[in-house]
Structures are given as structure tokens and as C-alpha cells.
Amino acid sequence: MIINICLSIAAALVLSPLLGGIINKTKAFYAGRKGSPVLQLYFDLFKLFRKESVISTSATFIFQAAPAIIFTSTLAATIFVPFIPGLPAPSFTCDFILLFYLLGLSRFFLIISALDTGSSFEGMGASREAFFSALAEPVTFVTILTMLRLGGGTSIQAAFRGLSSESWIIIILTAVPFFIVMLAENARIPFDDPNTHLELTMIHEVMLLDNSGANLALMEWAASIKLWLFSLIIVKILLPAEILTPAAYTGLTILAVPAVAVITGTVESVMARASLLKVPQLLFSAGIIAFLGFFLSLNQFLGW
């Protein structure tokens, strides 16, 4: 189990900054540009860690502690989604609640550290983040419930076990809303624009405005680990484990996670960012799809 935990953490730490690079490269492709290198985020992190942090005089210890807490709690969440199947993984009753609550903890600190700076922009960003995550949470749990219903257990492992090629219809109805939640949780278009410089419209980025140096690096790294985690869950939903040997499955996962990033980049390129008023509607649609899947799973229509 220790091996698996170590592997999960290592993969998240090492590979996660790659995803942002792939997304940006994809977007550059659609925009007809060359774009920054795929490894840009690694360079950025390296650069930021060597810089000193400037801390606002109005900020308290919360602001200073937040990056570390955010980083560690996000990283801790990754151990529940094992990278390699077959090996024993930490699993217990209702561990999915812990997973999403760890992410919730990091979000909580992100929000209060933003509020701690006393900037009006960051306050706005924090309030938006709180509002939209409250809308995204039920969708997440409905999709997990759908999977659990099929798997017949109460842990994340059971949830993934329940999916098989037989239940492809549920897989679609789970993966699509979860993908939308991923876009919302990771501040992607159409929910948020990670590339914008306009403080008034930002959600996630605006909360990081006062961070610099290593603190900013930790925040950015935590964000990419979160993206990695969500992409990994999507891959696990789409690729039921039973079909392949563990080795082949691991290999496929390594290919599939970047594919999710490419899809994300494509979505970002063909869509405009939605008005903030429309964001609840988008999450609502995701919820509707998730509920449709849930209803279908209730009645085991697959047997028809």
C-alpha cells in the first residue's frame, strides 16, 4: 500500500505541471500560434521557487500558512485515486467524502487567504469561488453516487470497480458531468479564463494576485495537481479496470490523461467564456445529465 501511495504522490508531483502545458499547446494550435513550450510550467515553478515572497503588510499568518496547507491537502487527496491498479490502495468506507473534503479544505484556505489580503478584487474572486464550488459539489456527489450504485460498495475503489463496458451508458452519463465539474473546479473556460489579465472577471487567478515567489509556486503547483487528480478520475471512469492487465492499464492511463488535457484545450478553444450569470446554468445542465445517469443506474435498465 505504501508503494502505491508513494507512486500516486510521485506521479502527481512530477507529471501534473505537464497538463497545463499540454492544454496551452492545444489552445495555441487552435489559435494558429506556436505557443509556449509544453514544459513552461516547470520552468515557471523553478523560477518562482528561487524568488523571494513579498507579503502584504495587511496580511496575517493565514496568508502565509495557506499555500502550504493548500498544497499538502491537495496532494493528500491524490492517494485515493491510485495510479496503478492491482496494488493495494488506501480504501475505507466513504473515503470519497474525505477526498472531496480534502479538496474542500484547500479551497477553504484559498478563499480565506484571498480575503486576508483585504483587496476588493480578491474578495470578489473568493465569493465567486465559494458560490460556484457550492454548485459544483452536488454534481460531483451525484456522479459518485451513480458509480457507487453500480459498484455496490461505499469506497472510491468500489465506485471504479462498478463500471464495466456493459454499463457504458452510465459511463457516458458520469464522465460528461464530471468533465464539466472538472472545468469548473479547475478554473477553465467556459467557467473562468486562466489566461486573462482582467481582474474584474477572474475567479481563481485573482485570488493568487498577492502571492509571489515560493508561495505562488506552491499555489500554482497545487492547482495543477488538482487538475491532474480530476483528469485521472475521468480516465478511471472512462476506462474500466477489468479490461486490461495492470501494466497495460497503467500505460494506457499515462496516455489517456494527456488526452483529457487535449480535450480540455479543445473545449477551451471552441468556446467563449460564459458570463458569470450563466455559470450556474452550465453546472445545472451538468447536474441534469448526472441525475439522468443516476436514474438509469437506479433501475438497472442495462439489463434490457
Binding site: F284, S285, I288, F291, L292, F295, L296, N299, F301
Partner: peptide, 12 residues
Amino acid sequence: VIIGLLISYGSF
């Protein structure tokens, strides 16, 4: 939309 969802579920 919710009504539509319930209708669809109901017809199933």
C-alpha cells in the same frame, strides 16, 4: 428541464 428529466425518467 427538471420537469423534462422527470418526464423522461417517468416514461422509462
